[in-house]
Amino acid sequence: MSVLIDRHTRVLVQGITGYQGEFHTGRMLEFGSQVVAGVTPGKGGQRIHGVPVYHTVEEAVRETRANAACIFVPARGAKEAALEAISAHLDPVVIISEGMPVHDVLQVVEYARRSQVQVVGPNCPGVTSPGQCKIGIMPNHLFKPGPVGVVSRSGTLTYEIVAGLTSRGIGQTTAIGLGGDPVVGVSFTDALRMFQDDPQTKVVVLIGEIGGSAEEDAAAFVKDTMSKAVIGYIAGRTAPPGKRMGHAGAVITPSEGTAAAKIEALQRAGARVATLPGEVADLVRDVLGEVTQ
């Protein structure tokens, strides 16, 4: 099992004819994802890695029965692409695009809420269910199927931690990159709820960072609802207040966002929090009660 996407997911790539769209469509196909359609307005009729390209999402869905979207459209066109995908009831809609204006994101998440569609991102690496499907840009070789759910606001830090798990023989059900923007679709709490309900997921790794209070909200959910173990890691313990650390959402404000507050909230909720990223896999191994070779 997995969450959000599985072997039945039929992926439609918006912006498939662009440099990133074309490159990552190839990687998704290599991973084993069913990429069934691409959309680039004005470029319908082409094929990218054998995948047919359409002018509109509606047409693509009619022809290919696509049921999930992956958006590579540059930031200035990403809102319209996302609204089009939600309008066609693709689910999930994964927005890889970086740099979307926050007022655009507000419209996208509101329309998604209304349409009961799950949006992942924007500014995210995507979703990977090893052995089943990948939507997005996470490197293929890092993953292996197994019992750990991974949810994170960061890309490469997720790769680092997943590589640590896989090298110890510990696989993953699904890894979800939520995205580094201040407002995103699927939240930590949403992801925890999915992992809690997924029978194959035994342990959840939550990789947070400074900014906002999504980790604190997640901690409340862990305390009140989760029966599964949660291992945390929070980046940005040494980040100064008021500075945006790369991600639009990674900024400590006078009222919220410090790593210390997030770590404390998670620990109080019963999660174990690693000090170094390299410790996460060991904590997971301890929880799973496995012995490495």
């Binding site: 994170s152 606001r153 960061s154 890309g155 490469t156 830090l157 997720t158 680092e160 580094g180 990789i207 960072e209 400074i210 890691y233 980046a235 940005g236 313990r237 040494t238 980040a239 650390m245 790369g246 991600h247 990674a250 790593a259 170094l276 990223p277």
Partner: peptide
């Protein structure tokens, strides 16, 4: 961004 923040830590 996450990896760099973590590297600082």
């Amino acid at each position: 961004a996450g990896l760099v923040m973590s590297t600082l830590d």
